[in-house]
Amino acid sequence: MNVNYIFSLIVVLALFLLAYVGVEAAGLQWLFGVVIPYAAVLIFIGGFISRILSWARSPVPFRIPTVGGQGRSLPWIKPNPIDSPSSSGSVVVRMLLEILLFRSLFRNTRADLVEGDKLAYRLEKWLWLFSLLFHYSFLVVFLRHFRFFLDPVPGCVQLLETLDGFLRIEFVNDAIQVGLPGFYISGLVLLAAATFLLLRRMFSAQVKYISLSSDYFPLFLIMGIAFTGIIMRYFLKTDIVAAKALVMGLVSFHPVFDPALTKSVSGVFYGHLFFVCVLLIYFPFSKLMHLGGIFLSPTRNLPNDTRMNRHVNTWNYPVEVHTYEEYEDEYREKMIEAGLPVEKE
């Protein structure tokens, strides 16, 4: 038992109950369906921007990239432009690979003592693989949901849905022979990847040791989102038309308060929506801000060229130094005796 994940799990379950009961028993559809979503989006946008600005306000006094390959030097030595970028173009490539493909994580190794006295390093790609799956399936799920926000649904969202669903036809029909209506592979991958990340946190000794509740909480929350989404889609057969009407009301700033409509959508939908709202609210105040932070990381977004191009520190202030004159004054006689040249004989 670990208080960190138990606590987070309980909070997430309680949040769901709050929304479910609030809607089903107390009829607070207007709160969970209108007020909180608006507030969440505002907090998210405001919080995100203010966080980025607060980072941006702190200057970058020194150019300190972590160099990951041969630097640019003599003309006949082949530089590694990606891991040791010396131009802004290369920095952009390095950042893109970092952000889109998690390049540094791809380097990951695992160190073990073998035969008692040898350190061996194995490639360890699981974390990279599941992180990538996690983020990309989340992205697909997110984009797929644009069909609830946009009317008519744009072609690219439809194409994405088709691809996402197409994968399932191959997969489910061959393997299980069950025909679910438009099964989306992304939702399942999201849940599976999140589960991997969770189990890794719970059972890998080192990761467990460093994990805080604030590491478990967003994982449970995202799993909750995926889970409620899947339940709604495949088991509860939620009234999608009504749900879309509600969401369209929100995005067009004409929120729907019609009880016939809001009540026809199940409590699980409000739980799902509430989870998303909590995630949005939590985001700017948490480690989830790594989404924005990675763009500002000075060890990655700067070129390795300080000997070539001047970097200015905006707060560079004069410091006390020990001048040559002071030095010579102290040692002049000894210097003359030793035959060392001096300024003043």
């Binding site: 460093i210 994990s211 480690k287 932070g293 990381s297």
Partner: peptide, 13 residues
């Protein structure tokens, strides 16, 4: 130091 501030905030452990 932006480095310090960003590094305090974004570690996902």
């Amino acid at each position: 130091f932006r480095s310090f501030k960003v590094f305090m905030d974004i570690c996902v452990r």
